[in-house]
Computed example of a mutant assay.
Amino acid sequence: MNFAIIGVGGYIAPRHLEAIKELGHQLVAAYDHNDSVGIMDRYFPDCQFFTDFERFESFIDSKKGTSEEIQYVSICTPNYMHSSHIKFALSHGAHAICEKPLVLNEKDIDELATYEKKFDKKVYTVLQLRVHDAILALKKKIESEKKDSHEINLTYMTSRGQWYHESWKGDVRKSGGLSTNIGVHFFDMLTWIFGEPLSVDVSEKSATVEKGTLKLKNAHVSWSLTIDRSLLPAEAVKTGKTTFRSIKIDGSEFEFSEGFTELHKRVYGDILSGKGYGLEAARSAIRIVEQIRGMK
């Protein structure tokens, strides 16, 4: 398959490059307005690179009907750009593979569904926790127990420096806010396992911390998210870790700290074999973070 990538200079792009390369496919074109993209030499040194979107678009169109016609566009751009770049992919004859969060608002999902029908192309979202071995095993275990309600405590701490607040990630209009940035994949995982969201509440909200509760069909979730390094637990600081994850289910710690290295490759493998997750799979988590964003 022939791929193009938008946002190749971003933090998450190397995982996409690696997945495309290891699965034996070709990256034909890449775009980023920044030119610090030397990482491409490790994977696709012959890929055509553009810092001008109009030239990138013209190149994509010029490959139609050739052996380098683009079948998939991978999107690794800032959150607020996802919807427009997905539309670009579909309207130029390619399927879209988009990083989380797929979009910022639930209404965008409905709008993209009309684009899928109009151009007969698919939108795929990267929900990598759904292919994590430990989480797959947890889903199977929860389903076998057939318990009506579970108590869950979710804590996710990932250190970010002052740069975060100056970047697009610190701008709610562009990132969607803290929960959208660092929490959406956890909310997706929980709704996937414990059922649809019924209500969400926020008890604390600042530029560095968000806390609240979430009621799912089969669970009550207390959640806490932060990028404040000073809040890391002592055991994490002692071992030099800058990230701390904890999920307790009915009082028992659920361990899933390992096994993250191959997840994008699995996501791509599923998409290319026709089993990837599409627009509707993203809806519940997008609804949750959109509601959090609107709360004080």
Rank of each mutant, 00 (worst) to 15 (best):
residue 194 F to V: 08
residue 252 S to A: 13
residue 282 A to Q: 00
residue 237 V to S: 02
residue 210 E to W: 01
residue 214 L to Q: 07
residue 188 D to W: 00
residue 266 R to F: 08
residue 286 I to H: 03
residue 224 S to M: 04
residue 244 F to E: 06
residue 246 S to L: 13
residue 229 R to N: 10
residue 219 A to C: 13
residue 234 A to M: 12
residue 252 S to W: 01
residue 243 T to R: 14
residue 190 L to W: 03
residue 266 R to W: 06
residue 207 A to Q: 15
residue 212 G to R: 02
residue 242 T to L: 13
residue 207 A to N: 15
residue 245 R to D: 04
residue 224 S to Y: 10
residue 188 D to R: 05
residue 211 K to Y: 04
residue 188 D to N: 13
residue 190 L to R: 00
residue 254 F to M: 09
residue 220 H to N: 15
residue 211 K to S: 12
residue 209 V to W: 05
residue 280 E to K: 11
residue 205 K to W: 04
residue 262 E to C: 00
residue 267 V to Q: 03
residue 194 F to E: 04
residue 262 E to F: 00
residue 215 K to Y: 04
residue 285 A to C: 05
residue 233 P to F: 03
residue 201 D to G: 13
residue 209 V to L: 12
residue 200 V to I: 15
residue 193 I to E: 06
residue 266 R to E: 12
residue 201 D to I: 08
residue 252 S to L: 10
residue 239 T to A: 10
residue 252 S to K: 13
residue 214 L to R: 05
residue 229 R to M: 07
residue 232 L to C: 07
residue 265 K to T: 12
residue 241 K to M: 08
residue 236 A to R: 01
residue 250 D to Y: 05
residue 280 E to H: 08
residue 253 E to P: 01
residue 231 L to W: 03
residue 272 L to I: 15
residue 282 A to P: 01
residue 211 K to G: 00
residue 286 I to V: 14
residue 287 R to F: 10
residue 239 T to H: 02
residue 252 S to T: 13
residue 213 T to I: 07
residue 257 S to A: 12
residue 229 R to F: 05
residue 193 I to V: 15
residue 269 G to Y: 06
residue 219 A to P: 11
residue 212 G to F: 03
residue 217 K to T: 14
residue 196 E to S: 15
residue 215 K to N: 12
residue 191 T to M: 09
residue 237 V to D: 00
residue 268 Y to S: 02
residue 215 K to W: 01
residue 275 K to F: 10
residue 204 E to M: 11
residue 197 P to Y: 10
residue 265 K to W: 01
residue 202 V to I: 14
residue 249 I to N: 00
residue 265 K to R: 13
residue 243 T to C: 13
residue 211 K to M: 10
residue 243 T to M: 14
residue 269 G to F: 05
residue 255 E to V: 14
residue 270 D to K: 15
residue 241 K to T: 03
residue 242 T to V: 11
residue 279 L to E: 02
residue 219 A to W: 07
residue 284 S to L: 04
residue 257 S to F: 08
residue 205 K to F: 08
residue 240 G to P: 03
residue 267 V to L: 09
residue 243 T to D: 15
residue 259 G to T: 13
residue 257 S to M: 10
residue 261 T to H: 04
residue 211 K to D: 08
residue 230 S to E: 12
residue 194 F to N: 03
residue 232 L to F: 08
residue 238 K to F: 07
residue 277 Y to W: 13
residue 283 R to Q: 03
residue 251 G to N: 07
residue 277 Y to C: 06
residue 222 S to A: 15
residue 256 F to M: 14
residue 227 I to Q: 02
residue 281 A to S: 14
residue 247 I to E: 02
residue 253 E to C: 01
residue 274 G to F: 10
residue 203 S to E: 06
residue 187 F to I: 05
residue 241 K to W: 06
residue 220 H to T: 15
residue 188 D to C: 04
residue 188 D to I: 01
residue 241 K to N: 13
residue 195 G to L: 11
residue 246 S to H: 06
residue 199 S to L: 09
residue 237 V to M: 02
residue 263 L to C: 00
residue 196 E to I: 14
residue 193 I to F: 09
residue 202 V to M: 08
residue 233 P to N: 04
residue 264 H to E: 09
residue 195 G to Y: 11
residue 191 T to R: 06
residue 211 K to I: 03
residue 238 K to W: 01
residue 276 G to F: 00
residue 275 K to V: 07
residue 207 A to R: 15
residue 255 E to A: 10
residue 239 T to F: 02
residue 218 N to M: 07
residue 220 H to C: 12
residue 232 L to R: 04
residue 278 G to E: 09
residue 250 D to T: 01
